[in-house]
Design a protein around this nucleic acid. Structure first.
Length: 269
DNA sequence: ATGGCCTGATCTTCAGGA
């Protein structure tokens, strides 16, 4: 017999590398209001937990789960759909130069469990940071495997710093010797898919590819010289609930934009 | 129209981003 508990629940979930939540705060608050986003996974907060604008977000109805320690990295989940069972950091994750960096936080937001991740950049193939990136991805794989295989909608959203295929790179030849496209990095994504997660590919609002990042330099955005490196990896129950997904390239426009655009996912859960 | 880097700190110069 149908009842209130059987009603579909519509949720808008998104991920966005804001490149400093302090610098982006006016645009972030306006974007939350205009899009009606319920849950946002944030990367590169570039502030301490104390500097995180939890009070401003609370005024808009969002609770915050924050993992941030200073000028580099920093992640958060903000939600107006519940925020429980927060886990700060990547269990079993490696440090870099002896430091556990703030690159992961997870939480349960109503019917969905989400991770916000900021995968290490890697800098150059062969650099210590590149080895760190691969180790970090191995630890992520282990940490999310149980949720990925579970019955509850579950997704790992964030800046993966990996373009899954050459189609996700505006000029593959230019990136031939670079991080973000190497077989080892793409194998780490494949291993993640092997846990039961799938790439929820958003639709572009313009042009043919759903890029999510464009370099600030050399007119990268106007020329659409982009990469798709901000990803939503969801398990089967999550993917089944997806009604739409798109890259909000409008948010990349104009003065005071991040170099990443938000990826938005609409769910019936 | 979307426009030749941006951010925060070590703060006038730099690391890091990708």
């Amino acid at each position: 017999m149908p009842g209130p508990a059987d009603r579909l629940s519509y949720m808008r979930i998104a991920t966005w590398n804001v490149n400093s939540i302090t610098a982006r705060l006016p645009r972030l608050l306006a974007w939350l209001e205009s899009t009606g986003t319920d849950v946002l996974c944030i990367q590169e907060t570039k502030t301490t937990a104390e500097g995180f604008p939890a009070a401003e977000l609370r005024e808009l109805g969002y609770e915050s789960a924050v993992n941030a320690t200073g000028r580099w990295n920093g992640v958060a989940v903000i939600s107006r759909a519940g925020l429980e069972d927060v886990v700060t950091g990547l269990p079993g994750g490696p440090g870099y130069e002896g430091v556990q960096e703030p690159r992961a936080v997870s939480a349960t937001c109503g019917p969905v469990r989400v991770w916000s991740v900021y995968v290490p950049n890697g800098r150059e193939v062969g650099h210590d940071h590149y080895a760190y990136k691969l180790r970090w991805l191995e630890a992520l794989n282990k940490a999310v495997a149980e949720g990925a295989a579970g019955q509850r909608p579950f997704a790992v959203l964030g800046d993966y710093n990996i373009a899954p295929t050459d189609e996700d790179v505006w000029d593959p030849a230019l990136f031939a010797e670079s991080t973000h496209v190497t077989p080892a990095e793409r194998a780490a994504l494949a291993a993640l898919r092997g846990t039961g997660l799938q790439d929820v590919v958003p639709r572009p609002l313009k042009y043919d590819r759903p890029y999510t990042y464009w370099d600030y330099r050399q007119l990268g955005f106007p020329k659409n010289k982009g990469l798709r490196i901000d990803l939503v990896y969801g398990n089967a129950p999550f993917a089944a609930a997806v009604k739409d997904s798109y890259v909000d390239r409008e948010e990349r426009k104009g003065k005071g934009a991040s170099d990443h655009a938000p990826v938005v996912v609409d769910l019936d859960v």
